[in-house]
Design a protein around this nucleic acid. Structure first.
Lengths: 153, 153
DNA sequence: GCCGGTTAATCAGCGCACTGAGTATTTCGG
DNA sequence: CCGAAATACTCAGTGCGCTGATTAACCGGC
């Protein structure tokens, strides 16, 4: 009766999109290294020596999740953790040679996968796709950390 | 060095979008009933008496996940499971009165939440947003179940 | 030097999401 | 009617993602 059309619910679409992506990633990129794990490798290629919390911030993962992801990458020898001598609470993270090789290999495969994933869209539509997703995600993330509401001091 | 820009990776954006949505759902719709749970309630409002597997198909969840979601809704008394007398393998699912009430309440709140979630987009952009997400998700899901490739059989 | 507040990381607990293996039931072929 | 294939569901195992509580380390004030 009063049932709703879920295809007009952005959350439902976002979940389906992510599931579809996960499946494609698994078949076209890697069965061992997941997309969030790749995001962490990528962050450490861009900025070696980051601590755990900051990596989480860069890739959008909370403290608990980033800890698990990093411990898996650590177990597999793709990165190394060392205590920050300046601050004993922190671990400084750095990719190993194998981690760097993995990142290179996965980057190329991920690029190919993205082509397949976005194949149904024209070039203009891809631009719009990125723009719309980014704007909605950014705005919703902004609701979480409300800026002091008054930059005009 | 060779680090990639994750904002051009649809999978990364999809994950961020879903996380942002989850957060907003939690604060604006319900802390007890998740968005996938609502999708199940909605499917059973539209088609009472479905079996577990078919519900999963409708909302896009695999056999294991749908089993857990349904068992939680069952424990909370929002739906009832009865063995299909015609086929002893199936459970027929039906919302309880409380399940129907929950669906009504959540529908209204979800509609309000969607307004907030999509606030950064104009009406035209929302249409484009839905269209682009649907097309990409549909296409990627299609890669999983390859149609017999030749309807003209 | 010590106290209190803050911060980085861990741990416990919940929920979503998948695969692969196993069980019970139905259905189809002989 | 019986055995084999198919089907619905369950269970074990892995991984992402969150919150709340805890622990260890830092940092400011006194």
């Amino acid at each position: 009766m009063a049932a709703v059309d879920l295809t007009t619910h952005p959350g439902h679409l976002a979940r389906r999109l992510q599931q579809a992506h996960h499946l494609l990633w698994n078949t076209m990129v890697s069965e061992e290294t997941t997309s969030p794990q790749f995001a962490v490798l990528n962050a450490l290629v861009a900025e070696p020596g980051l601590d755990q919390r900051t990596v989480g911030e860069r890739v959008g993962l909370d403290r608990s999740t980033i800890a698990e992801v990093i411990s898996r990458l650590d177990r597999r020898g793709l990165l190394g953790k060392v205590r920050d001598p300046q601050d004993g609470r922190r671990f400084l993270l750095r990719l190993t040679d194998e981690g760097l090789r993995a990142h290179r290999r996965l980057s190329m495969r991920a690029a190919r996968m993205n082509q397949v994933f976005l194949a149904p869209l024209s070039a203009d539509e891809r631009t719009a796709f990125f723009d719309l997703l980014r704007r909605v995600a950014d705005a919703a993330e902004g609701l979480r950390n409300p800026e002091p509401s008054g930059v005009a001091g």
